[in-house]
Design a protein around this nucleic acid. Sequence first.
DNA 1: TAGGGTTTT
Length: 696
Amino acid sequence: MDSKYASIGREKPKITNDLTVKRLKLCVNNANTKKDKEQTTNGATNNNKLENNFPKENTEDLKEARKSLPVYLVRTRIIEEIKKHDTMILIGETGSGKTTQIPQLIHEYRLEGKSCVAVTQPRRVAAITLALRVAAEMNTDIGSIVGYSVRFEDVTSPRTKVKYLTDGMLLREAVTDPLLKKYSIIVLDEAHERTVNTDVLFGIVKLAQKERNGQKQNPLKVIVMSATMDVDSFRKYYDNCPVIYLEGRTYPVTIYHSKIKHEDYQYAAICTIFQLHTTTPANEDFLVFLTGQEEIETVMSNIKQIAKETVGPQIRVCPLYAGLPAAKQLLVWKKTPPGMRKIVLATNIAEASVTIPEIRYVIDTGVVKERTWCTRTGAERLSVVPCSQAASWQRAGRAGRTAAGASYRLYTATDFKCRRQHNIPEIVRCPLTSTVLMLIATGLDPGTFPLIDTPPKDSIHAALLLLKELGAVDNESNPKLTVLGKKMTAFPIDPKYAKILLCAPEYGCLEEALSLVAVMSSENVFHTPLHKREDALKVKQKFISPLGDHITLLNVYRAFCKAPLKKQWCRENYLNHKNLSYAFDVRQQLLLVCQRLNLAVSSCGNATDQLLKCLLSGLFTNCAWSRAGGRYVTSAGAAASLHPSSVLHGRSANPALVYTELLHTQRSFLINVSVVQPQWLQQVAPEYARRCRSNR
DNA sequence: TAGGGTTTT
């Protein structure tokens, strides 16, 4: 189609192994009806409440749809395998129906016995929609035989036999019941995503299974399900358990690689967009993978500009990234009128989290923003890096959901071959404070806990050190939970934030601390579009506190609670309604935990000093001291500047600050910062203050 | 002095 590209035809990720695995060969024609689609995500938003649209479909239609799924044809074989083995890996491509059908099959054959089968998902929307779908297919009410459990919502009953839940929920359950005795079969789905939660669950179920099966009572079966996956390492981890492959059912996607190396992938993307735009029918939509909000906004305005001067069909450009308000995200799913092309500019949110129908062409820049972490300074780094081969395949797959499509990779085939096969598992590159605390609370030793990929040693050590400093554990070498630590595990938030809440009664500010911690536990509540920065900044003025971002956030949250028309109010104030609503739900949940722990919920009124001292009692490791030229240095000795989004940015320097986050992009920035009195540190964390004095 | 990918409890 284009001389810039070399066609390679349809390629599939090759699963190379010389293992003796069972391979179930399936030959099924391509899907051709909409109802056949595996509905794993509802796409639009992360709203807490989702309507169950599935029962409106005719039950007979649903039955027919089930029968046409690849997994249905080999159901008896699969059941036999599950009966025979305690652990099994099941590789099923998109459209195989594994996630909706296997749990149903298990129940139809009553393999779960008197207890229940759990199916985990990394994302809550997926857990909810899958449960709704399966309940509809089984012609039963949600919450009876089929249920789901996600944060803020438990739709299950004692009758529930098939339970979809997020990885995070099952991990929480493991703290109080490490053997997970409620379940006879646990299905860990989307294993290839390798989130921290899934990786930790692998170990938890492995240990639980060993213990339960050793006792020969109430044995546990484990099924690991995934798209393409690093089979060798998984299989080794699970003691050479059998692997079963299920063929998928999607449309073919032709892969094109660039013949030349592009210096500027944004420019290359725009060129490719317009070459395709002028040569393909208008009803065929594009999906372009970019790295972030700013890039998306830049490319968007470029496209709009060029479109004015180019002949061809009309264009609607739709941005899509997590921080985009839900109402604007919805445009992505809105059909364009005939003769108009939709071009979706998305971050990797469109790789797995949401599904956009009708995409025919994927333009893959081959880059992704990845977060890594420096154990020494606690700084997080966001850098643009080449994505893995697995991510490229995932991106390409987005073009083959409803018809045959193509993926244009803006990098060469050689480049592709040199890339790592899989993403680096999150557990290897993230702070592990919460995870380590959770493991200790579950009675497990973080030093010997079995993980597929081991995090760097200093990463676990840094977590233990911080937990010791927070007073959650008694020592670092053989850590035992303290009374405070035990209370901290009751809160589903970062241990530092839990410490803030637990200290709040001392400062008489739990009311305020709850609101502040709830907002800090949510995503950014400010939405600042590139071209409306000045407007957004202007309306932000009324919330600003000279004491810094934390009190400003508190002001925003309070105003949000008082606003009668919240959505409209958020729109007018450049605030993210979804994230503020989420903070509201989190606050309610945290309040319940506080009440259970008999913490006195009182307000400090206008005594903001009290609240800031309280904040410091959890964040005392996050102090920065003023240096010449508006620069700061953190307790760990890292040089950093105020992030331009801070309300303190551009104001006169303060001797001491507390910050929520240290982020390294082009430079190191302190994000969400407040003014504190230097002597407070001595008061709230004397031991720590003594140790880090050298850096001041 | 200038800018935060994506999830989850």
